[in-house]
Design a protein around this nucleic acid. Sequence first.
DNA 1: CGGCTTTGACCGGCGC
DNA 2: GCGCCGGTCAAAGCCG
Length: 524
Amino acid sequence: MATPLNSSPPPTPPPSTIQFPVSMSCTSDHDHDDHHVNVNGKRKVIDEMDFFSDKKDFAGSGGSDDGADEESRTNHFSGPDNHPVLDFKVNTGLHLLTTANTGSDESIVEDRVSPNSEEKQSRNEMAFLQAEMERMSSENQRLTDMLNQVTKSYNGLQMHLMTLMQQQQREADQRQEAADQGHKNNNDNNGLLVPRQFMDLGFASNNEDVSLSPSEGRKLSPEKDVEGGDEADNKVAKNGHSPRGVDQATEATMRKARVSVRARSEAQLITDGCQWRKYGQKIAKGNPCPRAYYRCTMAASCPVRKQVQRCADDSTIVITTYEGNHNHPLPPAAMAMASTTSSAARMLLSGSMPSADGLMNSNLLARTLLPCNSSMATISASAPFPTITLDLTQSPNPLQFPRQPNQFSLPFLNTNPNMAGNSAAALLPQIFGQALYNQSRFSGLQMSSQELLDQSGHQVSSQMPNVHQHGQVNETANALATDPNFTAALAAAISSFMSGPSSNNGNTNTTTNNNVNNGNNNSN
DNA sequence: CGGCTTTGACCGGCGC
DNA sequence: GCGCCGGTCAAAGCCG
């Protein structure tokens, strides 16, 4: 009786439970009924698989008594009733499996025609489904392997590029130092100059300690985590003019550097692949919409924080501001955001640096990142903290994938659970890196590409094997191109990246995961 | 019971 | 020195 089960509060009312037994009894009486039931049960499975749809036609002859009654159903699908018929068809293909699995039982049942056929049917179906499952599993495994391989290649490529970049940087640094001493004029060599400055900001320290670029250092060496002293560091950063002093300054600056993303979304939840915990909410002056403060919870010591707030003028616009760099491994979905963010932060950092060319560099970087529409990115040095703002709201159609109405995410991030979340997001850094690399070949912005690689690869860097460079990328692209889903994701990522406002680039940071609404945000 | 959100209080920076 | 403001803390409550 249901009553005894007091524990179950809401669920099943007594009647339902009772009814089951009743129906069961009926079925027991009539084999046919059983068939129906069974058929129904299996039917769902069949529907999902949709394997038997082709076999409908045969159903009629099935000879099972039930067949007539449920003809209608069968018409739709190879309905359960039809199974007998289906069996014939299926049996030919799956017979071996079926017999193997259920042989013993069948021999006994054989006497009755209808029961046999039904059982056979069900078994055949089972076998068929099992075979199909195996097939799909193997395919899934294959795809997984492929993905792993691609990931490996990507990581390896990043490492390789990093190494090459570092070498180049060292050389460049040495040259420039010599040049600087000789009172070299920077303007003459814009191409070289830019890279160098980037290096100074992000990698100057690298020469001595490659992985130690402020943000990078944190990422690569969590133990180095410098949570405290933000304020002090910040001050240092402000004062640090000397290139050498830049290390600390850069670190502090990176910490405070912010990437702000403006995206249009009415959705309450925006996922960026990271886990966030809300630790505060405030109503900022001049904006009735509350500002929510989030902290990355993927690692206890992760310094990354973000603010989410809706635009006062247009509540459909969500402004997400990222600060800091993750010091822990990120899921693929979050990689895109993290790498983009860090890249933007570095870009910002380069522009925020004391050097006179800072802004120029920033602008150049902005153009590099957002080749199609540099206006999308705005770098502000006037704010308390250097901030780069990426405005995605201008993009005509940032989102190319079909979206779920209540969920928003950046184009390249998690738009589509299936694609965007994984492939697209995963591809982003790659695309981004490739684009930067290509561009760097012409513009000399090797730093930026390197930075990107570093950032995106920081997590993985430790494990990266050596891989061929461009070839790898191309191979990866080819491999991905073979898969329709990947292709679609790639196309979307590229389009959102290039065509749109490089918003994507800017997104790097922000967009990824934000939930905003009234200030309430959920990270993923 | 643990994790998360909410929300008022607190703190530090900044401008007057 | 005072008040404003942004940002953070932490207790209380909620939820699964």
